[in-house]
């Protein structure tokens, strides 16, 4: 496995000196995100998030399975992350610490906070439930994977439609999209992550690029929803930071989460408009589309 190459001493010195003069290498403000671009695929449940040069693709799938015996009413919801060598050569080989921590952070933010109503996935108690699986693929890694991945999964979950189902006695029939309109998942709230990077004990940067991440002394990821509920905080070691700074980070996180939620809302609406074919009026048409 090739080692991840860090910045050179010159780069490091230049970066830290610039920070002292309150300048970031890409001339952003300390509390600013890079441009966020959110796209959806042709199929339901595919989202493509770009934050600067970081790009994360998320795909949601559903299938009918038997539930776990200790939770007969809950549909399993799993999040898997794959950091392939495509994103960075150092990702080849067994799952790295970055990957494990990313998977765990997503799990804590989305699953433990109860974002997806898993009981709504139940078809027959103890027999058949929908199991939802989110596959997160990192296509390009330029820092801040957590925020991008979290936004991607939430957006994809909101975009996803599972096949409508019908239960007759013991039989479960799942309709295809052609037969019936899909059913949106029931999400209780939309948690998003904001990651803060700390330098020299005082400086706090939002949305660090890869080289900024390599030079940071500590980081803290805060998961929040737009209602001001903190779903998860993870400052896993690193340089100590004053408690007051961490509290101000949570206030800043709320601002960013509100903004990201708005972007997500707008893009979902645009996508819904694009897919809307005119509803019931469009159906009974005698015109042949192939004849101009």
């Amino acid at each position: 496995m090739p080692r991840e190459l860090g910045p050179s001493l010159n780069e490091r010195q230049f970066f830290l000196q610039a920070l002292k003069e309150e300048v970031r290498i890409d001339s952003r403000g300390f509390g600013d995100f890079r441009a966020i671009q959110l796209d959806f695929g042709d199929e339901y449940g595919v989202s493509d998030v770009r934050i600067g040069k970081t790009r994360v693709l998320t795909n949601i799938t559903a299938e009918v399975t038997t539930p776990f015996p200790d939770r007969p009413f809950d549909g399993p919801f799993t999040i898997t992350t794959s950091l392939s060598a495509m994103a960075s050569p150092s990702f080849s080989g067994p799952p790295s610490e970055t990957e494990v921590l990313l998977a765990r952070l997503l799990e804590k933010t989305l699953r433990r906070s109860g974002a997806l109503d898993t009981e709504s996935l139940c078809l027959i108690a103890g027999r058949a439930v929908f199991s939802i699986r989110a596959d997160v693929h990192v296509l390009s890694h330029d820092g801040n994977l957590t925020d991008a991945a979290c936004l991607g999964v939430v957006a994809a979950l909101r975009h996803f439609r599972r096949g409508d189902s019908e239960v007759k006695g013991e039989d479960v029939k799942v309709f295809t999209m052609a037969e019936r309109e899909g059913v949106a998942l029931s999400l209780l709230h939309y948690p998003l992550c904001v990651t803060f990077s700390f330098y020299e004990g005082e400086v706090v940067l939002v949305d660090a690029t890869l080289s900024e991440e390599q030079m940071r002394e500590g980081s803290c990821t805060i998961g929040m929803n737009k209602h001001g509920e903190v779903c998860q905080i993870a400052k896993l070691g690193g340089a100590p930071v004053d408690a007051v700074i961490l509290l101000s980070c949570s206030n800043l996180a709320l601002r960013h989460v509100e903004r990201m939620s708005k972007v997500m809302e707008e893009r979902l609406l645009e996508d819904a408009k694009r897919r809307y074919k005119g509803g019931i009026k469009a159906e009974p048409s005698s015109e042949n589309a192939r004849v101009p």
Binding site: M224, E229, I233
Partner: peptide
Amino acid sequence: SDQVSVLVMETRVQAGRLE
């Protein structure tokens, strides 16, 4: 001191309660 080196929370809570 007030220097926090680890802060881990896994449950949902109102932001106002954090302080």
